[in-house]
Simulated scan of single mutants.
Amino acid sequence: MNTPAIFDHRAIMLHRDRAAGRQGLISPILDAATAILSDRLDDVARPFTAALDIGGRGLVSQMLAERHIPTLSMDISPRQAALCAPHTLCASPEALPFAPASFDLVVACLSLHWVNDLPGTFMQIRQSLRPDGLFLACMPILPTLRPLRSALERAELALSDGVSPRVSPLPTQQGCVQLLQRAGFALPVVDSERLDLRYRSTTALLADLRAAGETSALVQRPRRFTSRMLFAAAAAELESNSEDSRITDCNKNNTDGFSMPLHMAVLSGWAPAPTQPQPLQPGQFQHDLRDVLSGSKATEQIPD
């Protein structure tokens, strides 16, 4: 069965190409996401000898190089791939061009949420890992950009009595857990991180989205010219609904603009291997839970 095309790969490539020269404008966000993955990697007490960096914009490959991990970087955008020299290739994460068991580490930093077939991509990543290899990733999740989506929808309804898809759909944290499980990763872990971002205007928010290559690449996005009235009405809607965030920040002497936090899921999973801890099968337990809960089991005394 063919996967429905939600995202336009050519548009994604063009947006990331254009963003390659402007990503310095959002470097604090990219640096923070890379640092989160770096911290998770530092918690793993084992060496890695062959890593794949998917869409790391040059930051992930640098982080891995500092740890002396040989790395191959890939990106759907030729200009983004060029930022990851010396070992790079241009390819889509939906069709990984690697033999099974090619890597013992795969890292994806804010680069998989434009994939049409996420279950298929996760399966390909698992297959490209050697037994006991690690997959480490961060992805934007809901409710990221939900206020922007709502403001655009209300503004468009008021102006044209209809709604067009303008903001990319994002997964939930629970959805990320299910993706790891469905792909067959062992010991899956998904937790969340939040980057608190504030913008003085909707124009500034849209500028950051362009600098990140995150403007709409939906197949069903409007192809006609968008009236400035729509963005003006959406901006008024978004900024007028930011009173709660202004009140929250009053004690910080920051009452300008509005809050637009980036919610991220941080995912880790391992390619299955016989050496990994395995859950007990039914009937293999050694203690009766009723005894433990009732306290009837004798407590072993530790000699002085």
Rank of each mutant, 00 (worst) to 15 (best):
T121Y: 00
V266R: 02
P47E: 12
P119V: 08
A95C: 02
V189W: 10
L41Q: 10
P93Y: 03
S227A: 14
Q174W: 02
M63W: 01
G24Y: 15
E237G: 06
L37W: 01
V219L: 07
D132F: 00
G175N: 09
G56C: 04
E237C: 13
G58K: 06
H87I: 10
G213T: 00
L25W: 08
F98S: 06
Q276G: 00
R290C: 11
D288H: 13
C109H: 10
D208Q: 05
R194N: 05
T215W: 07
L289Y: 12
A234E: 11
P47K: 14
L206W: 04
F285G: 08
A151Y: 06
R40W: 09
D304M: 09
A101F: 05
F185A: 08
A217Q: 05
L205Y: 02
F231H: 07
H15D: 07
S294G: 14
A298C: 02
L64N: 12
E156W: 02
R10F: 13
A235Q: 11
R22M: 12
S242D: 09
G24P: 06
P279A: 13
F231G: 00
G21Y: 11
D244S: 09
R149F: 00
R146G: 09
L136I: 08
L59R: 08
F103R: 06
A85K: 15
R200A: 15
N254G: 03
A85W: 13
D104G: 02
L262V: 09
S216K: 04
L134C: 00
L230E: 06
D104P: 03
H263W: 14
V177E: 13
T299L: 15
D43T: 10
H263T: 07
G184W: 13
L30R: 05
V189L: 12
R166W: 13
T34D: 04
Q80W: 01
I29H: 02
A19Y: 01
M264I: 13
L134V: 00
L293P: 07
D42C: 15
T202E: 06
T299K: 14
P274G: 10
I302A: 07
R146C: 06
L136C: 11
L180C: 14
S102F: 03
S296M: 12
E214V: 02
D208G: 03
L41M: 14
D104F: 01
S168C: 09
S77R: 04
A273H: 15
D117H: 03
A99Q: 15
Q174Y: 02
D244F: 05
M264E: 03
L96T: 03
R224K: 14
R57Q: 09
P140G: 07
T255A: 05
F231P: 00
E214N: 05
A5R: 12
A204T: 06
A65H: 11
Q178E: 13
D304V: 13
S268E: 11
G21W: 12
L230R: 10
